[in-house]
Design a binder for these strands. Structure first.
Lengths: 156, 156
DNA sequence: CCGTTATCTTGACTCATTCCAGAAAACCTG
DNA sequence: CAGGTTTTCTGGAATGAGTCAAGATAACGG
């Protein structure tokens, strides 16, 4: 079973495939994330509690850590933000993050499969991952900040 | 005065150039960082206290934040690690981080000046920075982990 | 040298996350 | 499908990195 295959399974079978026990909190977390990628632990906890009505915060963190270790989830940690999680683990894709509203979106590799995985000079390091975060403003915030600036300019 | 020029000035003159007051904690932090790039706030505090014998932790954070805002310093925050600071701010270079010992080194842009600053599809985001972190093992840790594995294989 | 204003000190506090010990539940086994 | 093992979950305390706030101190501009 390769990673690509794993992603197509139901949460229940994904857990079985990596030898993890099937529990309600795990199913709920995986299910929530498949519909709400890039959620924080807090948002996931809120979503999971909507349908399980009682899950400890610690359980959420345990589930996220166990699934990340088992490669069912991927954790991203944009500078200055709490960690976010996603179910898309099969490829080394990257992220766009809005500096204003924190909206986070996927972007495919810039150059073929592993972009930039060969830096100009690796100084002897043995690399296993190239993590790329593009920072900027999402279309909504870009529009808003422009109109805000406009407003400020007018009122000065 | 452009950014390249700033970098060549003494700390005292860098501060003056951006209109900040010259204080002992600021001089000590800038001086320490020019000799110890990629230090954490804690390491910087320790270094600064060696020659100032009394600086509050809050002062260290204030200095780091003020200088980062003024672009005299750049802050990098590798996932799962406390923030690190460096004086090299004139270019958009990237970093190698060792997963084992946290050693952090600079690498130049992979492709020309702003590598990857154009993702395949920016989804309408207006980007201002492409942050790249290469994760792996530094030469020392790679050597050590290889000999460790060897040892394990032998002992099994 | 003085006044203004930025900076520093001290100490409380937040946030995201982890650690711990015991209770509960999932899986294997017969 | 009951019993035993082992993993996972609960509840509560604790951690690390960093921020907030109020008053004391010290840079700079005149």
């Amino acid at each position: 079973m390769n990673d690509q295959g794993l992603a197509r399974l139901e949460p229940r079978d994904q857990l079985r495939a990596v030898g993890m026990r099937v529990t309600a909190p795990r199913l709920a977390v995986l299910d929530w994330l498949s519909n709400h990628p890039h959620s924080t632990a807090e948002a996931i906890a809120a979503g999971v509690r909507e349908r399980l009505d009682s899950v400890s915060t610690q359980a959420i963190y345990d589930v996220l850590n166990a699934c990340t270790r088992a490669k069912l989830l991927r954790r991203i940690e944009p500078a200055g933000h709490p960690a976010r999680f996603e179910t898309r683990t099969a490829d080394n894709h990257h992220h766009l993050v809005c500096r204003m509203c924190d909206r986070t979106e996927d972007v495919d590799c810039v150059v073929g499969f592993a972009p930039c995985l060969e830096p100009s000079n690796a100084l002897g390091f043995i690399l296993d991952e190239a993590e790329v975060v593009f920072w900027g403003l999402c279309p909504v915030c870009a529009g808003r900040s422009q109109s805000t600036n406009h407003h400020i300019e007018e009122s000065v």
